[in-house]
């Protein structure tokens, strides 16, 4: 398997729990990179803190493991100094939208060419199963033993409103679609967000009696539908999957280059 050329085998088996969806994201990501035919030196992966963020340790690209929620800020620095590199920022739902919520919306607003992968398992797994801003109303977490009363963000709507120019959603069940989306997101010249519903059988699944990893993936199959499908009309509770936004808008690093040129008064 050529995808194995892109990993640091010495750190395997990885630390994720049996059946953890993050491993499937890693699997699909490696296949996307393989399809892109990029060399390991062309990719920078910047992650924050959490189960999902440990992914940067397993891939043999340039990698940065940074502060909780601040991966996009570090990634912005990397991209601004080396715009020719492809920057991929994997984040958990809490990392991206609670701790790093501001970084997320402002990176989207600037439309800086980076790929944000939001691995949405609806829980803080690493710290013991506390509810996150994506857990959802009524769910069980270690910090909501009587049911959660917080409503969730809609990551795709949020990213779209904040100005991201590529926004997509898929699940770990739809691994092939995930690979295609990650590939397209990396190729997109602007801020791209791919939300991936990924199972946490250890905390979210167990607390909410959703069964084992495979059963949680079955749930993704039965509770999601392609954008604008007839099934969605008939059952509005279904989660839509697909590409929500794909549009052109001036990219931040390109615009910044123009500022530099103006400031120099046209002199090289």
């Amino acid at each position: 398997m050529a995808v194995k050329d892109y990993i640091r085998e010495r750190f395997f088996p990885h630390l994720w729990c049996p059946g953890c969806g993050h491993g499937i994201v890693l699997n699909s990501l490696l296949r996307a990179v393989e399809q892109l035919g990029m060399s390991k030196n062309e990719i920078v992966m910047v992650s924050g803190i959490g189960c999902s963020s440990r992914i940067s340790g397993y891939v043999d690209f340039h990698t940065l493991h940074t502060l909780h929620g601040r991966a996009l800020a570090f990634a912005t620095g990397v991209k601004m100094s080396k715009p020719e590199l492809n920057v991929i920022v994997p984040m958990g739902d809490g990392d991206a939208l609670a701790i790093g919520g501001n970084h997320f919306i402002h990176a989207a607003r600037r439309n800086i060419a980076m790929t944000a992968l939001v691995m949405n398992n609806r829980i803080y797994g690493m710290t013991g199963g506390q509810y996150s801003p994506l857990s959802g109303y009524g769910c069980q977490a270690t910090t909501s033993p009587f049911g959660n009363i917080d409503y969730s963000f809609d990551i795709a709507e949020l990213a779209k409103a904040a100005g991201a120019t590529y926004v997509a959603r898929t699940t770990t069940y739809h691994a092939k679609q995930m690979t295609e989306m990650i590939r397209d997101a990396v190729l997109h010249d602007g801020f791209s967000v791919v939300e991936i519903l990924t199972q946490c059988p250890t905390y979210y699944g167990r607390r909410n009696r959703l069964g084992d990893a495979a059963e949680m993936m079955d749930w993704y199959k039965s509770h999601t539908t392609p954008i604008g499908s007839k099934a969605k009309e008939e059952n509005p509770s279904l989660i839509e999957r697909g590409v929500f936004v794909q549009r052109d808008k001036p990219e931040y690093c390109t615009e910044y280059d123009k500022v530099i040129e103006k400031a120099r008064g046209g002199q090289a």
Partner: peptide, 20 residues
Amino acid sequence: IRCPDLAIEILTEKQEASEN
């Protein structure tokens, strides 16, 4: 493609395993 542990690979007659 769905193995979270990258632990299974299908080898076919045409395709040889990677060295790794």
